[in-house]
């Protein structure tokens, strides 16, 4: 993580995949795990006495939301490290973690809404946790918008690092204020259904939690490698364009194409 893409040899064989032995193992574990959770969650585990089949959504919802927090913190930490070290690795790590956090937040909101419809009768309630998660989702979308913007790489890394680091105080103050706001309204129409979970359901939840972690790790590694290769490609194109310009300016020096790096 301390090397920069330019140090990688340009003569290295072109990569055809971002896999390595470790990620193949992770990928195989993810595939088996997803099938296992699908079987446990949809077939083996019993329906809940109160919520019936909609309880099965928690095997996706709870792990997604929990790993979302981990991904957000990882993004903030990587952003902090980029500000200290200024190496591409931390920047790419922050970008990858933020993407995973965005997807998990979206997944959490959608599964929550789908679960809310049969359980609460509505897709959305202005519950404290829902509201602050929705705002976190918008914050992450803003981060993605900045990331997608074609700026000069160093400038983009710098803006993204500050934005990524600010995610944590933003999310914290939003969470706190929304909690307080909802706490004032004692007439909350929706009471939390008290779920005491045990036996096979608890086991399924634990397995789905681990599997979601493995899937996220697998995605993170691949996304990191793709991001890293993107950096190399960007610099390679820049070098090639510079060499072209030099050759244009001085046709007699055709041998200098490829120029000093």
């Amino acid at each position: 993580m301390t090397t920069t893409p330019t140090e990688a040899s340009p003569a290295a064989a072109p990569a055809t995949s971002t896999a390595s032995p470790l990620t193949r193992v992770l990928g195989a574990l993810s595939a088996v795990g997803v099938v296992l959770v699908g079987w446990l969650g949809l077939v083996a585990s019993p329906p809940d006495v109160v919520q019936q089949d909609s309880v099965r959504l928690i095997y996706v919802h709870v792990p997604a939301v929990t790993w979302m927090y981990v991904a957000v913190f990882l993004c903030a930490f990587a952003s902090f490290m980029w500000l200290r070290k200024r190496t591409d690795g931390w920047d790419v790590l922050a970008a990858s973690a933020a993407e995973i956090a965005t997807i998990l937040t979206g997944l959490g909101l959608v599964t929550g809404a789908v679960w809310g419809r049969p359980t609460w009768g509505v897709y959305w309630v202005w519950d404290a946790r829902l509201t602050s998660t929705a705002i976190l989702f918008v914050l992450l979308l803003g981060y993605q918008a900045l990331r997608r913007y074609p700026a000069e790489p160093q400038a983009r890394s710098r803006m993204a690092a500050v934005l990524g680091l600010l995610l944590v105080p933003n999310a914290a103050i939003v969470h706190y204020s929304v909690d307080w706001w909802r706490g004032l309204h004692q007439d909350a129409t929706v009471s939390k259904i008290d779920v005491s979970i045990e036996g096979l359901m608890l086991f399924t939840l634990a397995v789905s939690f681990i599997v979601m972690g493995v899937v996220c790790a697998w995605l993170l590694v691949h996304r990191f490698r793709v991001g890293w290769l993107e950096r190399r490609a960007e610099r390679h194109h820049l070098d090639a364009a510079l060499a072209d310009r030099r050759a244009d300016a001085d046709p007699s020096a055709g041998v200098a194409v490829g120029g000093p790096r």
Partner: peptide, 29 residues
């Protein structure tokens, strides 16, 4: 943060408004 970008007119509201949500909440109450 967005000052140097050509998309700043649309990016600033997207970045800033969710951050200011607690201000709207607190000031309104």
């Amino acid at each position: 943060l967005a000052a140097g970008l050509a998309v700043r007119d649309t990016l600033v509201p997207l970045l800033l408004l969710p951050v200011l949500a607690p201000v709207l909440l607190g000031a309104t109450r």
